[in-house]
């Protein structure tokens, strides 16, 4: 991203975060932190091409981010985006169908044909007991895990997670803290290949050990903070506040 400004979808044209100069290389793990409403989610959604950027240039996989259309579908399949909250699951489908949808759609498969791949994902993410449960009835912590399974269904090269650890109970938090390092280094479910991971989070402390690089979105301004050492050394009040927050 070069000189990028992003906006929320409901206020297009009004930048919420400006001056984003950001380069993410393959295999890196970035943690983007900032207060709520600082534009982290808008940044992730702009990066995958869901919303147009207000200013600047967004390039992904060496080319410009695709406009809606067939190319966009091909490009978006290389991203796995886990939305915040309940992960924006499709409430009319059950857990199995939510995870199977991208596989069936892109591979023109029936749910039965996609079942081995979907079941492996559900098993790997400990979601098998929920397979037949309508997505709307799954609790938030589990729903987020279903959203992760859905995002990983197409074996994306880049995984973007929007506030994955917010509001989780201790058991789920422990699970995520165990899963994310495996995702970065190469999870067996994804063929053991390392993934590029971008995590947007209100809290930075739980992600200290994960992130290779850290960035801050604050009061509409983007700043790359550097690595963990740089973050820990920083005396800036905002960064100290995020650092010492609730983690």
């Amino acid at each position: 991203m070069k000189g990028v400004a992003v906006s929320y979808p409901h206020t297009p044209g009004t930048p919420v975060l400006t001056g984003v100069d950001w380069e993410v290389n393959a295999g890196e793990c970035w943690v983007v932190t900032g207060l709520q409403g600082s534009g982290k989610s808008a940044l992730l959604e702009t990066a995958v091409g869901l919303h147009p950027n207000v200013a600047g240039e967004v390039r992904v996989f060496g080319g410009p981010v695709a406009a809606p259309g067939a190319d966009a579908a091909a490009q978006r399949r290389r991203f796995g985006l886990v939305f915040d909250g309940n992960g924006r699951l499709f409430p009319g489908l059950n857990v199995f169908e939510n995870v199977a949808l991208p596989i069936c759609y892109h591979g023109n498969q029936s749910p039965e044909m996609a079942a081995p791949q979907v079941n492996a994902l559900l098993e790997g993410l400990e979601l098998t007991p929920f397979a037949d449960v309508p997505a709307g009835r799954v609790g938030r912590s589990w729903a987020r895990r279903v959203a992760l399974a859905r995002a990983l269904a197409l074996r994306p090269e880049v995984v973007l997670l929007d506030n994955p650890l917010i509001g989780l109970d201790a058991v789920h938090l422990r699970w995520w803290r165990g899963f994310l390092p495996q995702l970065i280094s190469g999870h067996p479910l994804l063929g053991g290949t390392p993934r590029t991971v971008v995590i947007a989070s209100d809290e930075v402390r739980p992600l200290l050990s994960l992130g290779h690089h850290f960035a801050l979105a604050h009061e509409g301004v983007w700043r790359v903070l550097g690595d963990r050492m740089a973050l820990e050394r920083s005396e800036e009040p905002m960064i100290r506040e995020l650092f010492n927050g609730t983690g």
């Binding site: 978006r76 985006l81 939305f83 699951l89 949808l101 995002a151």
Partner: peptide, 12 residues
Amino acid sequence: LGEVEALEALGV
């Protein structure tokens, strides 16, 4: 509720 964007994010 943003489910349409979730579809788009999956390339659907």
